[in-house]
Every structure is written in structure tokens, then in C-alpha cells.
Amino acid sequence: MLTISQELADKIVSHARADHPDEACGVIAGREGVPERFIPMENAERSPTFYRFDSMEQFRVWREMDDRDEEPVVIYHSHTATEAYPSRTDVSYASEPNAHYVLVSTREEDEVEFRSYRILDGEISEEEVRFIP
């Protein structure tokens, strides 16, 4: 299960809406599995169907997390025309075994889809999301 503050979840959704129709992506860093620090990332692909963190930005952010004893607790991205479910490419490139992969869909303007998954060895398992104040 992913437990996340409503404030952080709202930030993910706002980022996804702002970058629509391109996919938005980013990280929430934290310790011991608790998501705390919101880090929106640039989508180096600037694409409605693909995302990739910019390699130098990723390097800086990962080093900063390392220095602060943090981990990428949440890795999020948006789907802009399809449901908030991991695509085949999402599964094949998933490389953080401890992360919650959050998917947001912006296909409906007035409806939020916010779902979370573990992706491990090519297997997707959806998990419950609990929003806390």
C-alpha cells in the first residue's frame, strides 16, 4: 500500500495537468518508505507517449538523495490519452525495485485517475493508495 499526503498527491496531479498533452514525470524522495520531498523532473522526450528523465538532472537528484539518505519512494508519470495503468515500456524500463510507481491519467479534464503499482521482474502489482491529510 502507498500512503501519501493529499498535498503531495495534488502536486503530482497539478504537474501532470500543466504538462498535458505531454507526459509529466518526477520523484518523491523520502526515508523508510515515507514520501516527503516532491521533485518534478523534466521529461527529456517532451512527448505525449514517452518519458525519460534527463540524464544529468537524474544524476544530480540521485546524488542529492544519496547525500540525504533518501530513496526514490515514488516515481510518477502521466498518461495523457490512456488509463493510469503501466504500459509495456513502463514495465520493461522499471528499474527501482523499491519504488511505488504512480500513474496519473489526464485523459479526462474533470476526473482524476491516481493509481500506484510495484513493478518487479516484469510483474505489475497494483496496490491500494491511502491519502492522508
Binding site: Y51, R52, F53, F59, W62, S87, A94, S95
Partner: peptide, 30 residues
């Protein structure tokens, strides 16, 4: 160190004692 080796010389990039090489899987998907 602080540079992506793609912008240096890929696998041919010279390395020397005291350098740090960092491997990070790209975060990407569709």
C-alpha cells in the same frame, strides 16, 4: 565523476585512479 559518458567518449572514455564511475538505470517509460 559528474559527466554522462555519452558526452565524453562512450566505452572508449579514459578513466584513471581516483575517478568515480556511477551507474544509474534511466528512468523512462511510455
Amino acid at each position: 565523476n559528474d559527466e554522462d559518458v555519452r558526452f565524453l567518449g562512450g566505452l572508449g572514455t579514459p578513466v584513471s585512479d581516483g575517478d568515480t564511475v556511477t551507474v544509474l538505470p534511466a528512468v523512462a517509460g511510455g
